Amino acid sequence: MEEFYRGFAQRARNLAENADPFTRRRLLDLAQRYDLKSKPGSGGGRTLPPPRAMPPTALFSGSGEA
């Protein structure tokens, strides 16, 4: 997976060479993020959100009328 992100980072840098200043900055920022993801153990990968707390089932056991 590291090689995948490194390739994307390089592609973004190549595109940035011929881009206008605004797009160049965005592409270089993107390349930097891909570089962080490409380093093993850097924590740059995507993490799952914490599990949601389930409400007590007693809240749902009523007759359904308000």
Rank of each mutant, 00 (worst) to 15 (best):
A31C: 10
P56E: 15
A16T: 04
G62M: 07
F4I: 15
R26L: 14
P49R: 01
A58M: 09
A19L: 03
L27I: 04
R26Q: 15
G43W: 01
D20Q: 02
F4N: 12
E3F: 07
F22D: 14
F8K: 11
T47H: 05
E3C: 03
S42N: 08
F8N: 14
N18I: 06
R24Y: 04
R11Q: 15
F60A: 09
R46M: 12
P50Y: 00
P50G: 01
F8C: 14
S61P: 01
F8E: 15
S61H: 13
P50A: 06
R33H: 13
L36H: 10
L27N: 06
E65L: 14
Q32G: 08
A16N: 03
S61M: 15
K37G: 11
Y34A: 14
N18W: 04
G7Q: 15
P55Y: 02
G7P: 03
A16P: 05
S63P: 06
A66H: 08
R52Y: 07
R52T: 10
P50E: 08
F22R: 11
F22N: 10
E17A: 09
F8Q: 15
R26T: 13
R24S: 11
G45K: 01
L48D: 09
Q32E: 15
M54A: 14
M54Y: 05
R26S: 13
A12R: 01
L30F: 10
Y5K: 03
N14I: 04
E65Y: 04
L28M: 09
R52L: 14
R11M: 14
L28F: 00
L48M: 13
T57P: 09
S38Y: 00
A12S: 08
T23E: 04
D20S: 02
N18T: 10
S61C: 10
L27A: 03
A53Q: 12
A9N: 04
K37Y: 02
D35Q: 05
P50R: 01
G45F: 00
D35I: 03
P55C: 04
P49D: 02
L28G: 04
L28T: 02
M54P: 01
D29F: 00
S61R: 13
G64W: 04
L28D: 05
R11K: 09
M54W: 07
Y34M: 13
